[in-house]
Every structure is written in structure tokens, then in C-alpha cells.
């Protein structure tokens, strides 16, 4: 896509002049609609770098505890997770050269695959707001905006919030009347209905933790589900244990989640795990007027203490 050349150009320059030791970006995948996160250390090899509407993983995930100087390609959401990392001391701002990508939303590969049913996409080309999907005996021209990831359809921060370079003009942010209409639908359910909804949601969960591992926020050296002494949660696919995992993970992400959607994109069984985190995002916005990762100056609301807090219990 149109950003690819610019990404390569910037990467080449900052590797050649030693601004950074390596670049973290995407390379073209081995399948249509797939990309692979990659590191490039050699200015002569920046042609590997690539950009299209399927660069869906969150590259901030590859930053914690790295020591080098890093050039990183970042969409709006990745940049917010980078900001979260900086605030949480996982990486230093000075170590980073952020190659910002004004994002037009990522296209959801699975939506296209499910549209095709038992047919297979052999070639996928992007042009002018369209995705042309070709296969044995068919060719579809799809409007890309109809096939965006669910999170991208509601994203309000598509432009990188911090960056050292931009690969294109800033895009217009959407002015959705209500980015949380989906959460409200769940809020309106009765408690029994909610319980059923969430039980059904996680029914197929394999406890593989791909959602957690794809998430930049989940950098704990040992996740609570992996602790064995004490063992906080059972490891089988018993629904109680599975629910414990999901609910606790969501709480660990409260006030930190940028709704990048990497969790859902990684899940091998299409579980809409954002249904958990989005409620907390909404609550944090409603209660504290805060959205994660918009600034590297501010502490996240849930780890802030103020002597003049309006709640007496905390003073």
C-alpha cells in the first residue's frame, strides 16, 4: 500500500545514520491478508518492510525490556500502547524513533474468509478503498470500510499520538456519535442474561492465552494464570476457571487498554474477548474522563493517588 515506500525510506535513513539499531515493522506474509512482524538491522535490507491493511498485530508488544535504540512502525493504537509502555517504565522515550502511520483501520481477514465460505482467497489486492479478492472462479470487489476489524470501526484515535516521523498526512478522526453503543447493549441486559452472554462468549475458549500474549499490556514476567505456588486458577477448560482468567485479565487491563484488537485477531477460535475489556474502557472514560495512552506525561487513572481525591476512603 501507499505507506510502504515511505516506511522503507525512513527506516533506511535512520538505520544508515545510526539513529536506531533496529527497526520493528511488518513484512509481507506468506498468505494473502497476512503480515509478519519483523526486525531489520541493516539499512540495505529495509525493502523487507511492508504495509497494507492487514498489519493487525500491535508492535508495541515487542518493546518491553529491550535495551537497543529502536525504530518502530506505529498505527494510532500501537502508538498509544507505546505511550502506556513509556509511562509504565517498560521502555524509554529516548530509545524510540516512532514511525507513525495515520491509520485508515485494519481490514479483518476473518470477516473476508467467512464471507467466502468454503472458497479460498488466492489473491487479495487493495486499491482505492476497495479490496479485490480473487479465487478459483470468483472475484469480489469489497468496500474496505465494510470489512474493518470491529475495534477499528469504533476507533477514535487513528492518528499516532506520539511520533518522530509520519508516513503520510494525518487522517480525519471519526466523529462517531457513540463509540460504546455495543457495550451499552450488554449493560442493558439483566444479570442472569449477562451471565449467559459471557458464558456463551467463552464457550470455545481453549485457554491458549493467545489473546493475552498478543496484548502489549500483558508483559508480566509470570501471569497470574501461570503461577503455580499458589495456583490462583485451575488450568482445565472448566468454565469457572476460564471465566476467572478472562475477568481477571480484563481487570488487569483496566485503564490501560487501547482497544487495538490484537487479542481478538490472535484468538484461534474467534472469541470476542474485547467484550470484557471494552466495558472497563468505558467505565474508565465515564468515571475518570481518561483514555489509555493519550499522553506520556500522565499516570493511568487507576494508579494515581491525589491527597485531594474527592473520595474520602482513599484520602
Amino acid at each position: 500500500m501507499r505507506y510502504t515506500d515511505k516506511i522503507r525510506e525512513i527506516a533506511k535513513k535512520i538505520l544508515a545514520d545510526k539513529t536506531v539499531d533496529l527497526i520493528i515493522g511488518f513484512k509481507r506474509g506468506t498468505l494473502p491478508m497476512m503480515t509478519e512482524p519483523v526486525t531489520v538491522r541493516d539499512a540495505e535490507k529495509t525493502d523487507q518492510l511492508y504495509w497494507d491493511s492487514f498489519c493487525n498485530m500491535n508492535l508495541a508488544n515487542y518493546l518491553p525490556k529491550r535495551e537497543e535504540k529502536i525504530g518502530i512502525v506505529a498505527k494510532g493504537c500501537d502508538s498509544r500502547n507505546i505511550a502506556v509502555h513509556i509511562v509504565e517504565n517498560q521502555i524509554k522515550r529516548e530509545q524510540l524513533y516512532i514511525i507513525g502511520v495515520p491509520c485508515e483501520g485494519m481490514v479483518d481477514r476473518r470477516k473476508i474468509i467467512s464471507l467466502l465460505g468454503d472458497k479460498e482467497a488466492k489473491e487479495v489486492i487493495e486499491s482505492d478503498g476497495e479490496i479485490i479478492v480473487k479465487g478459483e472462479g470468483f472475484e469480489h470487489a469489497l468496500k474496505r470500510n465494510d470489512y474493518l476489524q470491529d475495534n477499528c470501526m469504533r476507533c477514535m484515535h487513528r492518528n499516532p499520538v506520539i511520533h518522530d516521523a509520519l508516513v503520510g498526512d494525518l487522517v480525519e478522526e471519526r466523529k462517531e456519535p457513540d463509540p460504546y453503543d455495543d457495550v451499552k447493549d450488554i449493560e442493558e441486559m439483566g444479570s442472569g442474561e449477562k451471565w449467559e452472554f459471557f458464558l456463551d462468549l467463552i464457550k470455545d475458549c481453549t485457554r491458549c492465552y493467545a489473546c493475552r500474549n498478543a496484548c502489549p499490556l500483558c508483559y508480566c514476567p509470570t501471569c497470574f494464570v501461570d503461577e503455580s505456588d499458589p495456583q490462583w486458577v485451575g488450568k482445565s477448560i472448566d468454565p469457572t476457571d476460564t471465566m476467572t482468567f478472562h475477568v481477571l485479565r480484563a481487570f488487569h487491563c483496566a485503564g490501560r487498554c487501547t482497544d487495538c484488537g490484537a487479542c481478538e485477531q490472535a484468538c484461534p477460535v474467534d472469541i470476542k474477548v474485547r467484550s470484557f475489556t471494552r466495558k472497563l474502557n468505558k467505565d474508565v472514560l465515564d468515571l475518570y474522563g481518561s483514555e489509555a495512552g493519550l499522553s506520556i506525561e500522565e499516570r493511568p487513572p487507576l494508579d494515581t493517588y491525589r491527597p485531594d481525591d474527592y473520595d474520602a476512603f482513599i484520602r
Binding site: 508488544n61 515487542y62 491458549c208 492465552y209 493467545a210 500474549n213 485451575g234 482445565s236 490472535a266 484461534p268
Partner: peptide
């Protein structure tokens, strides 16, 4: 290995992966 998330998806979906862990509950 760089991009790998260690997510286990490959092994859980794989028809030939057989590894298990034993737990007392």
C-alpha cells in the same frame, strides 16, 4: 522466532501435538 507470541495456537490446533500436563484439583 522474533514475531512469535508463544501463544500455543499452532500446537493446540495441530493434529499431531500430544503434550499434556497433569494437575490435581
Amino acid at each position: 522466532a522474533f514475531a512469535c507470541l508463544n501463544c500455543g495456537t499452532c500446537t493446540f490446533l495441530c493434529p499431531t501435538c500430544w503434550c499434556f500436563d497433569i494437575q490435581d484439583e
